[in-house]
Design a protein around this nucleic acid. Structure first.
Lengths: 346, 346
DNA sequence: ATCCCATGTGGGAACGATGTCACAACCCCT
DNA sequence: AGGGGTTGTGACATCGTTCCCACATGGGAT
């Protein structure tokens, strides 16, 4: 054995329970009992073991323990895009709650790709995680993980409501509130920018919009409903088209923070004055919305809490795997700022 | 055995290599060889094994494999605050690069706490990760992990330069460039908002500021150097003080995006016109800076790349553990926007 | 005919931890 | 003196995988 100077530990091999046992002059079993606190261990022996473990810098091997016990203490988290503050905050909430409950968190940014998501899910199965929380990009994930007996919680949107747990926000009521806010201000021509209506988020927000219009006896103009792409550039382009055309709406409801940014940029580029000439309200409050001028009114969701709640739900599911599946709906609130006002008088 | 209908898999037990072996009518060894591709396996046997594995939905247990092979394919990532877009983007870059290289990523948000960080580091040792990348909150992490023979890469700031790898940006040159930009515009009274000078980021940015002033023969006024706290509220408070007092500076250099937000808010609240009455330049370009009016000039760093590069460095280190430690410095660039202009004529 | 090598296959010992079980002291009570 | 309980310890099998080794078969060279 060559002399290695890297602190008390020989870098070549990590101390195992066997090393601790030898150092303390007891058997491996006794070390295990002393360290985990399960089973008998005389107090002097326990102390000797503890000291030996500390001196060697012994840290139990989670892999080996998990293999033996067949229960893991780590959860997988699959989010669509960490660069979007929404997902970043959701991940922050998940991390915090996971830490508190003694779970380690295996995280993958799935880049909004169903393929990446599937690969990541397979990796999580291989890792034998105790459960997974996911902002799903496709229905495949939940099905796949469930078929492997791994508890899943779908967050933000659901593909498998009824068969797996979900944690979402009040999308319909939020969209209805936002739209009704515009209606109350006197708007009749209200555009909707939305990226899709296949996911539950889009579907619910779309219907919330419809409900608010219906309640005010406003006929829906299909030309005012824009199925935009998922990025700022596309949303901006579509907004430029719509807002520079004839007969433009007096207000826009953007169904998420990305679309809102596109619309907001278009408004600025066209030199339209908000809220005098055009009102804007967004679903999902992003930091920039309270910093720009005029500040953007938005339906705020507690995103950090969304992530934290999902981990809580997952933990409960892990405890009682056979209970009926639950969908938790978190509240939202409209933050009326400066971008919404009565429409211009014609 | 009760009938469980959960797809092809009995939920009670996951298929192991032994099940595949029995289904294919061969031994465990043969299955292992057929699946991993190491060692001989007749092509018909291989095919039979592959089919059996697919039918059973067999996914190898990474824990067991790692335990046997004593080499892990997962890395730990410790970031200070996912809600700060800087860290979120860094994590996104790390996730992307880790995925590409076949690593799974165990992530913890350390909430800027040295204690949380230490606990997380211990969990990573227990998990026997192949390596760790960290935006360190204290010198303890790198020392601790290194003492356990785990490769570490410090990102953004370094506490253990020389003994562990690091990936940072050109803090000094960036700060010097930002300050020089203000000097060139004619400013002489330039304030510095900085959260600390103990970390390498703060130290380097502070000295970059000093160098730029020195090069222009401007004497440093200690009253203009504000050692602010680390949050928006504190920075805002300190900025309100300074900017409402007599003899206020004509320009402010904020050493990170959080401090910049505080200063920016203070400017708005005081009704100061930027850039006519006060110029502002930030280190670390955040999304909001290009959205507000006036747009904030900033020293931009490629944060996504910072995370990706760190994972690359870590991977190389894992390959060759005994090579000399390396510090990689990534470039930055000044994005001059609207918040910087010549000082008001007195 | 013998030997050798290439091609396959299976048995079994690890990896590091846990937990069951057997058993050894020891004290207390009859 | 012996039975029964409590307290404490160690041997050993096990978790799922890998991989070293032993061994079997068959064809080609000597």
């Amino acid at each position: 054995m060559t002399t290695e100077r890297r602190g008390p530990l020989s870098r070549s091999r990590r101390p195992t329970i066997k090393d601790v046992a030898e150092a303390a002059g007891v058997s491996r079993s006794t070390v295990s009992r002393a360290l985990t606190g399960r089973g008998y261990a005389a107090s002097d022996v326990r102390e000797r073991v503890l000291r030996a473990a500390a001196e060697l810098g012994y840290v139990p091997d989670v892999m080996a323990r998990t293999l033996k016990q067949q229960v893991s203490r780590s959860v997988g988290v699959l989010v669509s895009d960490l660069r979007n503050p929404f997902y970043a905050e959701l991940a922050a909430g998940a991390s915090s709650e996971a830490r508190e409950r003694g779970y380690t968190m295996v995280l993958t940014d799935t880049s909004l790709s169903a393929e990446t998501e599937s690969e990541a899910a397979e990796a999580l199965v291989a890792l034998r995680v105790a459960g997974v929380i996911v902002t799903p990009n496709s229905p495949a994930v939940s099905t796949y993980l469930s078929s492997h007996g791994i508890p899943v919680v779908e967050v933000d949107r659901q593909f498998a409501a009824g068969s797996t747990d979900g944690v979402v926000v009040g999308n319909r009521v939020g969209a209805r509130t936002a739209t009704a806010h515009l209606v109350e201000l006197g708007h009749r021509r209200i555009a909707l920018f939305i990226d899709e209506t296949d996911w539950t988020t889009g579907y619910e927000r779309y219907h919330g919009y419809l409900e608010a219009l219906g309640a005010a006896d406003i006929k829906v103009d299909p030309d005012l409903v824009v199925a935009s792409g998922w990025d700022v550039a596309d949303s901006r382009r579509r907004a430029l088209d719509m807002l520079s055309g004839p007969n433009r709406p007096t207000a826009v409801f953007a169904a998420n923070n990305v679309l809102a940014e596109g619309v907001w940029r278009a408004i600025g580029e066209l030199g339209l004055r908000a809220p005098e000439e055009i009102s804007l309200v967004a679903f999902d409050d992003a930091p920039w919305m309270s910093m720009v001028s005029p500040q953007v009114s938005a339906v705020a969701q507690d995103t950090f809490n969304l992530g934290a709640t999902a981990v809580r739900r997952l933990d409960e599911r892990i405890e009682t795997p056979d209970a009926d599946s639950v969908t938790t709906v978190l509240g939202v609130r409209l933050v009326a700022r400066e971008s919404t006002a009565p429409p211009p008088v014609v």
